[in-house]
Nucleic acid binder design. Sequence first.
DNA 1: GCCCTACTGTACATATATGAATGACCGCCC
DNA 2: GGGCGGTCATTCATATATGTACAGTAGGGC
Lengths: 149, 149
Amino acid sequence: MTPPMDAMQATLYPSETSRVMAVLLQIARALEKRLEEGLEMVDLSVAKYSAIKHLALAGEPLALSELASRMVCVRSNITQLMGRLETDGLVQRVEDPRDRRCVRAELTPLGRERHAAGAKRVRQVQDEMAETLCGLDCAVLERALAALK
Amino acid sequence: MTPPMDAMQATLYPSETSRVMAVLLQIARALEKRLEEGLEMVDLSVAKYSAIKHLALAGEPLALSELASRMVCVRSNITQLMGRLETDGLVQRVEDPRDRRCVRAELTPLGRERHAAGAKRVRQVQDEMAETLCGLDCAVLERALAALK
DNA sequence: GCCCTACTGTACATATATGAATGACCGCCC
DNA sequence: GGGCGGTCATTCATATATGTACAGTAGGGC
């Protein structure tokens, strides 16, 4: 589960902007919860799924730094996550003979299977959400996101 | 900082729903980051601000269970957060003579000041966001949120 | 060839969340 | 009035994030 944290969700500053921010944060929270619940059925967390998704997408072992970069998080986070993924048998660390600083993350066969199962669950959640989200204007949202970054 | 976790942010399932979900999650992430940065300037995290905001709103000491309920999180989280808030001198635990199971959280004078400072920062972030978010249709977002819950 | 800088992954401290288990306490029913 | 079930906060284990500090390695400039 991702944190709640409703700094915006209340009624202290009921301007329109405040309300929009609050609703956006709550929607994101609800979406993450759906994803978590879907992935939980195949023994994956959002973090773990994200990692094996990037590895599956890459099609080859990735340096942990590269994985951190693609997951938009710090390296020390990947160090920990890799530990849990190795414990689960989904990923293994492999040395890079060309650069001995490097450790690469490689999907195991089980990891590949699990990724497929997770992807199926994610697609299912998306299907369930389609009707709910179809009223939103994707282009407008994308413009907002671009302005926000 | 709130987790990144981009299960949806990629390109594997580029259906419209998937894209909308990805953008929503990224927008929320960016918003939280702005809030965190704003609150950081007054030595507050989003979690801490949320707690003292609820206490200020309530206008009286709240039982930790009640605070957990209002913050939509579990009690053990509040136990930890209260420890950090007490260390910061923003809040203190007070006993409830009428129910000795109860511990109530009471804002200190410093906590009240800090809440005011945090609220100012949050309003500032909202002002900065107003233009970016004004294109979004609040009513549509609210309908989506209602359907999601 | 050697040194300096930059990059790699990891270890550690910390913040934030969850859930399960525990012990204290309340209120009610008989 | 005594027991019993439910509620309270805390503790513990765990997952997920961050940032700092560190040791090892790579690689370029001299």
